[in-house]
């Protein structure tokens, strides 16, 4: 796999889906997990999640894995490429937060 040439921000949905998939899980569990991680703020719609999963599979950022036996639900997990993307995003977010705090940080009440 060549180095990712992706630039720019990940969407919130994609960022949280990728984070969730550091542990293999199926669609419904991803929704629950994202909701928990964001303390209820991000409530992914099934259509949005489905579209994101398919795009991420195509980009090879996640892959389908064998689910629990007897379960027909497909499970997914993050790939090495996906992890690289997350690391890149963390650096970008870190820069945003550092700059935000430095410039606007003292003004908040």
């Amino acid at each position: 796999m060549p180095e990712s040439s992706e630039r720019g921000a990940l969407t919130e949905a994609v960022f949280y889906i990728l984070l969730s998939l550091y542990t293999a899980m199926h669609g419904y569990a991803i929704m629950q997990n994202v909701k928990d991680l964001s303390h209820g703020r991000v409530d992914l719609g099934a259509g949005t999640l489905y579209g994101a999963i398919n795009t991420l599979l195509e980009k090879n950022w996640i892959r389908a894995v064998e689910g629990e036996e007897g379960s027909r639900r497909k499970e997914y997990e993050i790939t090495e490429l996906g992890k690289t993307v997350i690391q890149g995003e963390l650096i970008r977010l870190g820069e945003l937060i550092a700059n935000g705090k430095r410039i606007a940080g003292g003004e908040s009440k």
Binding site: D43, G45, G47
Partner: peptide, 16 residues
């Protein structure tokens, strides 16, 4: 089971 929306981000809403 809580709020029910199929599409929750701008991109997928626009597509629909």
């Amino acid at each position: 089971e809580g709020a029910f929306d199929i599409y929750t981000d701008l991109e997928s809403k626009i597509k629909h």
